[in-house]
Design a protein around this nucleic acid. Structure first.
Lengths: 246, 246
DNA sequence: CGGTGGCTGTGCGTGTTCTCATCGTCGCCG
DNA sequence: CGGCGACGATGAGAACACGCACAGCCACCG
């Protein structure tokens, strides 16, 4: 089931209307903090654990709808944790966190069951998007919720990664796509450059803050070119997207 | 009976609308885990057992619509298990798992009864496809559910392994066929190279992800050659297939 | 042995990301 | 009302990663 909050954000809810529950497992406190904050912002209920045993215990009584699981835990192997989790919660989808270089290695088979993974360092938008996808497909949320974001005559399909305005197809690069998704998930709402940087770029991004301006400019060229603009600048505050009409 | 989920995936259901039930029997935990995960994702209900006695017991009260049975079990010979299974569930189809070098002639006799087998190491797409076939043919699911996938003017018959585009027959190798089937079972949806690798290649495949790129290029040559392309690259995300028109 | 199918490795072209620098513009304040 | 300073937009181009082609190897099979 989906509802639309007063802010215009679309929230995932369970069939009974209660908030989605997510368990976050990572041994680095900074990561669990970061994720908990971001996921709570989605309107979800979050519980976190720092190791495998804690994860199993928490899973037992928290009964989450999805789990974010770091593959590198201090007390036990990621696969062992996965196995025990599965015994507790057979159908719960898992989003794995892995180091960039450790990939390809033991990841084989993990995405096969409808699970998914992201590599560290990740961007919060990416984690949230994948989690939403997993939850949507697992049936923990209402299955009618679809994967298309719409703002005015602009549409973005999260499954096919397709974007079009007024029926005309628009090609975006990966970063442009993530940025636009973030804007469109928060329509009519000013997003500061800091917020955008924190959500759309990976958490270890050390670069210049003006990449945001740059990518906004790219987006405008592709989306607003020769049309009524939908992306607006609020000088000193940030950017927002809204339907061209209003 | 088949239903189509919001994602466009087609699910097998029993005549009464309840999910199909599958029993997985293997002594290696990693295998049962892997299979359970993948088969659950198909929307099926899974129970697993690690040996012959467990299998018989579980079969008795779980009453599965199909069984995946490793021929090499610790406690008893595969044929013995099969016999006892048959006493419990006379009509249930069985998918045998065997080692590559195992005597194929002995297995060959077994498949005469409408059963089937795959050799280890297998790919998940293969196991899922065979199981679907077995269940469909056994009548546990609606018999009218057919075996043809269609995307635009491209058709793929899972029974006859025939592929054609715009009526023109296309010859594919085994790997190409599996890859195309996976794409066509998830139309208009971006599939990452990792997902593809996990589903289409065998679980012990240690190679590089660029085999996927290679086989995509093979498929394009055969399917998209000189026509409106149906296979699309989403740089940094993966591949997807969609009808040429849209 | 020739043919087919499956895969590895490498190298190239190009798309993508990001930095730096410059130019434009908005708004404040004298 | 005019000018200045801060902020934002945009152009150029460097560095990098990604996707893809090509060539060759191995295994299997008739």
């Amino acid at each position: 089931m989906t509802t639309t909050s007063p802010q215009g954000r679309t929230e995932l809810l369970r069939p009974d209307g209660s908030p989605v529950r997510v368990l976050v497992v990572d041994d680095e406190l900074s990561i669990t903090e970061l994720l908990s904050m971001a996921l709570r912002y989605e309107g979800w209920q979050i519980r976190s654990a720092g190791d495998g045993t804690g994860a199993i215990q928490t899973a037992r009584d928290f009964r989450p709808d999805a789990v974010v699981l770091d593959m590198m835990l201090p007390d036990m192997d990621g696969l062992t944790v996965l196995g025990r989790l599965r015994r507790e919660l057979p159908d719960v989808p898992v989003l794995f966190l892995t180091a960039k270089d450790a990939v390809e290695d033991r990841i084989a088979g993990l995405t096969a069951g409808g699970d998914d993974y992201v590599t560290k360092p990740f961007s919060l938008e990416e984690v949230v998007a994948r989690l939403r996808g997993l939850i949507r497909r697992s049936g923990a949320a209402d299955r009618r919720s679809d994967s298309v974001l719409v703002v005015g005559d602009l549409t973005l399909d999260e499954d096919s990664h397709e974007v079009s305005r007024a029926g005309e197809h628009i090609h975006l690069t990966a970063t442009e796509f993530e940025l636009l998704r973030f804007l469109m998930r928060n329509p009519r709402r000013v997003l500061s450059k800091a917020q955008i940087l924190d959500r759309v770029w990976s958490y270890d991004f050390g670069g210049q803050a003006n990449v945001v301006e740059l990518y906004i400019s790219y987006l405008r060229r592709k989306i607003d070119a020769g049309r009524e603009p939908m992306i607006h600048t609020r000088r000193g505050a940030g950017y927002l997207i809204k339907p061209a009409a209003s």
